[in-house]
Nucleic acid binder design. Structure first.
Lengths: 354, 354
DNA sequence: CTGAAAGCGCTTACAG
DNA sequence: CTGAAAGCGCTTACAG
């Protein structure tokens, strides 16, 4: 009438009894520590298997006073953009949730416009003996070097916001850039007629290395091609990210072309909105990215028609939880988790959780 | 040099030492049990306050072998609709997550078309001594009676999917129906011109008691009024929910009116899509609700243009977690949590998590 | 290579 | 009204 097989919870004590060893030895086997003869080890493993032993996480974390240290390596919130406030909030939310279970998270901020600040912070992370890392691998080469060092130290790491494929990361959590551009085109197509000219605007200091915006543009164009639309697509790259430069550029393009809709490939869409408002242009629909305060302002006032957004906060949250689940619960985690591609309009932004 | 104030964790032992009592007494005060003199109780509470004592959840749940029982009282998945599969999955997901912490969830299913099945299941819940309840209060009066019984027994309960205001629920987690109708109108307005006729379709056996669809219709109409649109809004109520009845009804309406877009106020939008496809009508855009398999099929094939969806799975998940956080972590939980109003199209449905 | 024992921070009878 | 002690299922020195 023993019913160990189904629900009755077995613990190290029962395993030890069956194997005729002490619980300390069982513990050694469970944690793959050295100093156990192959024979006992095998015997114990067999019993663990048979009993389908599930360790009690509570007891484990209570007894082991060890505290896990995670590092979060992300861009600082700058005056330029408060985008990174959202992932940070997600990280903080996860932190609050798992702190009771003995996890600490140290945040390391770098300057998006300064590779060396990334390198410096990455070094600090490595010095501070951490058990897991979350990072936004903006700088590809520097990130590769860093994660290689992590790998040598057996520290698992997760990417958020953008991916570097084939890097043995525990997982990537973030957008599918190409598809978000594709969706952008879909939305634009609701706003124009079949032969209208459409403008794509890239605003970034380093457009050529920013795979971000380029992938989105690619997706955008693909939509029109795939659906055999006749709309002509005009494109402008703006490498100076101050408002006046954007304005100057737009004035030129809009004079040359009879544009019927504008798609901005990143969060700088507010600059374009600003110009449209200033110039009192009301008949050009505008689609862009990200749930930033300024963008929402223009959404409310009707200058921006759609924002595409990918829950940056949730990316931070999920990134940390992936580390936690992997390290604490031994869970397997999905190698890639694409965030949903959310469509925000004037009528639903109030309910959006970034 | 003692630094209890900031980070050094204090436990019952330290409190007992300072209060000059045993830890058992401290425990009694912490849990508000009887059998402690007012004087000692006050003294201990003062110390707890001063030290900002935070109980160790791990130790607490480990020591107390007590298992919390939650009940989930929701509609069964029927052949009619598999909508409720999603909340159920969310509940199961939450269950997996908190089972290690000693929570068990029993599911009680009732028939959406049969109030008495709800009543019967509700009674069973009350017999089975549970510590928390999640329910979908579809049947208003019966639900009120049930939650009153819960309240008498001091059992906290949360509503998902639809709300009954002023019922002292721990919280409501679900859509803002009016606003989702409002958004539906916004989307429809992208698809029609200024004087086009628009059709609203309600499909439900009990339209008049279903506040659901009525609230959405209200929001839909409000959008057109608020934005001073001239579109005429035609409406049809379909009370027989089989395909042939829907078809017959649509044929009649579409003959009488030159309809330019259709808005269906619930997940039955697939019936309308079915008809449009069958009749080879391609120039009437269609907007409806819910991420159901059939609906997605029509979204893919372009018959449905937009689906509005409110993460039913997450509703189930969050509902359970609200109970857990309240009961286990003593957290305060938001009285109302409106789900985001998601817009699904052909181009982003693949990334949607229901 | 292995085991006995203390301890993690609580809760739970039990005794008075 | 109060306290001493055992125990929850693990981990961690320490001893051999």
């Amino acid at each position: 009438m023993k019913k160990n097989k189904d629900k009755e919870l077995v613990g190290v004590k029962e395993i030890a009894r069956r194997a005729n060893v002490s619980i300390a030895t069982v513990d050694r086997v469970i944690h793959n520590r050295t100093g156990v003869s192959v024979k006992t080890k095998d015997k114990i493993n067999a019993i663990i298997e048979e009993l389908n032993y599930q360790p009690n996480i509570l007891a484990r974390r209570l007894a082991s006073k060890k505290i896990l240290q995670f590092a979060a390596l992300i861009p600082a919130v700058s005056e330029e953009t408060d985008y990174w406030e959202a992932p940070l909030n997600g990280i903080i939310q996860a932190e609050a949730e798992i702190k009771p279970y003995g996890i600490n998270i140290e945040k390391y901020f770098f300057d998006q416009n300064d590779r060396s600040s990334f390198v410096k912070q990455a070094e600090t992370v490595l010095e501070n003996n951490v058990q897991g890392v979350l990072l936004a691998p903006m700088f590809i080469e520097e990130s590769k070097a860093f994660v290689e060092a992590c790998q040598q130290r057996q520290i698992p790491y997760v990417f958020i916001n953008s991916d570097i494929p084939n890097q043995n990361s525990l997982c990537y959590i973030g957008p599918h850039l190409y598809r978000s551009g594709y969706l952008g085109a879909h939305l634009v197509s609701f706003l124009v007629n079949s032969n209208d000219k459409v403008l794509v605007v890239n605003i970034s200091k380093e457009i050529d290395t920013e795979h971000h915006v380029l992938r989105k543009e690619e997706g955008f164009r693909a939509y029109f091609a795939d659906n055999k639309k006749n709309n002509e697509i005009i494109k402008t790259d703006i490498r100076e990210t101050d408002y006046l430069s954007v304005k100057r550029n737009l004035i030129a393009v809009l004079k040359d072309h009879h544009i019927k809709a504008i798609f901005v490939t990143n969060s700088r869409v507010s600059f374009v909105a600003h110009y449209l408002q200033e110039a009192n242009i009301k008949d050009i629909p505008l689609v862009g990215f990200d749930f930033l305060k300024e963008n929402i302002g223009y959404l409310k006032s009707g200058v921006i028609d759609f924002l595409i957004c990918q829950k940056p906060q949730e990316q931070g949250y999920r990134g940390i939880m992936a580390l936690y689940n992997f390290l604490v619960h031994d869970s397997v985690v999905d190698k890639i988790y694409f965030m949903p591609i959310d469509i925000i309009t004037k009528e639903n932004y109030e309910f959006y959780r970034n």
